[in-house]
Design a protein around this nucleic acid. Structure first.
Lengths: 170, 170
DNA sequence: AAAGAAAGCATGACTTGTCACGCTATATTT
DNA sequence: AAATATAGCGTGACAAGTCATGCTTTCTTT
C-alpha cells in the first residue's frame, strides 16, 4: 500500500519534530556531527585523530602531564589515553616515561615532532572555534556553556532520584 | 621531582578550566555521561540498550517505520539500525518485513513483546526527562534546544569556511 | 614493620557511532 | 525498451568512548 509507505515518512517527520526538544536525544547526533567535522578538518591538516589532536593540544598548553592528568583534563577514561599514547609515541609525537617519584605514573611529554604536528593542525582548529564564536554572541555562548555545566551535574548525579519508584523490580 | 608531579596536577586543573568554554571539547563528555546514565536506568528497568530503547519508543509513538525512517528520526546512520534490528527481532521486540510496494524497504513493526519492553522502561525514562525539566525553566530549555539547532547547523555546514586558507596543503 | 586500602595504568570486552562499498530494487532518462 | 542514476539496506572496517579486571606501586592503618 503506497499510501502507508508515504504515511510512514510523514510519521517519521512528525516523530523527529516531536523529539526535537528532548536533550537526551539531541546529544548523540550533536556529538557525532562535531566529531565528524573535527575529523574532516584534521584529515585536511595533517591527519591527526581527534584524540591525538586533543592530547597534543593539552600537552602543548599545559606541559608534561600524567595519564591521570590527561584523562582529568579531557573528562575521559584513562584507558582511552592508555591506548592512544603508545601509537603517538611510535609516531614520534610524545615521549612516555615512568615517573621517578611515583612508579605508578607515566609522564607524557611533547616532542619537537609532536609540536610540529600540533602547529600543523592548530590553525584550522582555531578557525573552527572562531567561526563558532562568530555564530553566537559571547553572552549566548556563556549561557550555553553554563547550561552544559548544569546538564553535566544532572547527568552525573546519583540515580536514586529516578529509581525510587515502587513499580520497579530490579 | 615531586614538585613537578604536583605541578602537573595544578597545570591539569588549569588546563581543564581553560577548555571549559570550548563547545567542541564539552560535547564528548556530555554525550558520554548522558549515555552512561541512560544505560544504567535502562539496565534497572528491563535491560534494553540505548538503541533498542530509542527504537521501541519511536515505533511505539510513530507506528511501523522503515529503516530509512528510523535513521532519519534518530539522526543516525542506517547501518546502526541495520545492525541493531535483527537482534531486536530475535528478542521478539519487532517484526521486519520487506515492503510489498518497494522491495528496497524493510518495514519494522512493534510486537506485543516489544510493546511490553517499551512499557517496562518508559516510566523511568519519563521520570528522567521530567527531572531534567525540573532543573531548568521552560525558557532555559527552549534556549538550550534552540542553540543545539544552531550548533547542528554549524556542524553540518560545508567545511570550506575553515579550509580556505593559503597555508594549507591538503 | 606488616597488613590492608587506594592509586595509576594496561588490557579485555563491549557499545555506539560513522564511512565506504556492494547488491538489489526502483526511478529517471534516453 | 534499454540504459543509467538513485535509493534502501546489509556488511566490513574503524574511531571513540566506557566499564571491569588485574598488576604494580604508593599510602594509610594497625
Amino acid at each position: 500500500m503506497a499510501e502507508q509507505t508515504i504515511n510512514s515518512e510523514t510519521r517519521a517527520r512528525a516523530r523527529r519534530a516531536q523529539t526535537r526538544d528532548v536533550v537526551f536525544t539531541r546529544l548523540p547526533a550533536a556529538y557525532s556531527a562535531s566529531r565528524a567535522q573535527g575529523q574532516k578538518l584534521l584529515q585536511a591538516a595533517g591527519g591527526l585523530t581527534i584524540v591525538e589532536w586533543r592530547t597534543l593540544w593539552d600537552l602543548y598548553e599545559a606541559g608534561p602531564l600524567t595519564i591521570r592528568d590527561l584523562s582529568y583534563v579531557q573528562t575521559s577514561d584513562h584507558s582511552l589515553l592508555s591506548r592512544a599514547l603508545p601509537d603517538m609515541k611510535r609516531k614520534g609525537f610524545v615521549t612516555m616515561a615512568r615517573s621517578p617519584d611515583d612508579g605508578r605514573q607515566t609522564i607524557v611529554s611533547l616532542t619537537e615532532k609532536g609540536r610540529a604536528a600540533y602547529h600543523k593542525a592548530a590553525p584550522i582548529m582555531a578557525r573552527r572555534r572562531a567561526a563558532l564564536r562568530a555564530e553566537f554572541t559571547p553572552e549566548e555562548l556563556a549561557t550555553f556553556i553554563n547550561m552544559m555545566d548544569r546538564l553535566d551535574e544532572f547527568l552525573r548525579s546519583p540515580l536514586n532520584r529516578f529509581l525510587n519508584d515502587p513499580d520497579q523490580n530490579d
